[in-house]
Computed example of a mutant assay.
Amino acid sequence: MAETCLELCYKVASNRAAAGGGGVVGALRQPMAWLGIALWAVESIAWVLALRTLPLSQAYPVMCLTYLTIPLACRLLLREGLSARKLWASALIAMGVALIAGRQA
């Protein structure tokens, strides 16, 4: 969830910077970019803590769910297009994660 939020923050910051004619420096002037960076730090700490108790082979596939949550969040919150092909690909990834999680349970 944090990964999805931080990616949305980066996208909003870059959109705002582009609208103002700024590049990377313009994006770093956006509060949303710094919120994304803060979420990245929190996510990194949470990831290390999660790996203390979970095997990497079990935890990592869950991270792949961002291939599902990011396109859906972009569609719902940023009004970006979402093709049927992207929906199918995301669904296949979600099914793969479910298969991996079910096998290790």
Score class of each variant (00 low, 15 high):
residue 47 W to I: 03
residue 51 L to H: 11
residue 66 T to I: 10
residue 57 S to Q: 06
residue 55 P to S: 14
residue 54 L to H: 03
residue 73 A to I: 00
residue 54 L to Q: 09
residue 71 P to K: 10
residue 55 P to K: 12
residue 55 P to Y: 05
residue 72 L to Q: 06
residue 46 A to H: 02
residue 68 L to Q: 09
residue 58 Q to D: 04
residue 61 P to D: 02
residue 72 L to E: 07
residue 70 I to M: 10
residue 57 S to T: 12
residue 63 M to W: 06
residue 48 V to C: 00
residue 52 R to I: 00
residue 50 A to D: 07
residue 57 S to M: 04
residue 54 L to W: 06
residue 58 Q to H: 09
residue 60 Y to I: 00
residue 62 V to G: 02
residue 46 A to K: 00
residue 60 Y to F: 12
residue 72 L to G: 09
residue 45 I to L: 15
residue 75 R to W: 14
residue 70 I to P: 13
residue 73 A to L: 08
residue 65 L to C: 07
residue 68 L to M: 13
residue 51 L to C: 13
residue 65 L to F: 05
residue 59 A to V: 01
residue 46 A to V: 00
residue 55 P to I: 07
residue 59 A to D: 10
residue 58 Q to F: 13
residue 66 T to E: 04
residue 67 Y to N: 14
residue 53 T to H: 03
residue 50 A to Y: 06
residue 69 T to L: 07
residue 63 M to P: 03
residue 53 T to W: 03
residue 51 L to N: 13
residue 75 R to L: 13
residue 57 S to G: 15
residue 63 M to A: 04
residue 70 I to K: 01
residue 59 A to F: 08
residue 49 L to V: 12
residue 60 Y to P: 08
residue 65 L to E: 11
residue 57 S to F: 04
residue 73 A to T: 00
residue 74 C to I: 01
residue 72 L to D: 02
residue 67 Y to Q: 13
residue 63 M to H: 01
residue 68 L to K: 10
residue 67 Y to F: 15
residue 49 L to Q: 08
residue 47 W to C: 01
residue 71 P to G: 11
residue 65 L to A: 10
residue 46 A to T: 06
residue 54 L to G: 02
residue 75 R to Q: 11
residue 45 I to P: 15
residue 46 A to W: 00
residue 60 Y to H: 03
residue 60 Y to V: 00
residue 60 Y to A: 05
residue 57 S to R: 01
residue 54 L to V: 04
residue 73 A to H: 08
residue 64 C to L: 11
residue 58 Q to K: 04
residue 55 P to L: 09
residue 73 A to G: 05
residue 73 A to E: 06
residue 72 L to F: 12
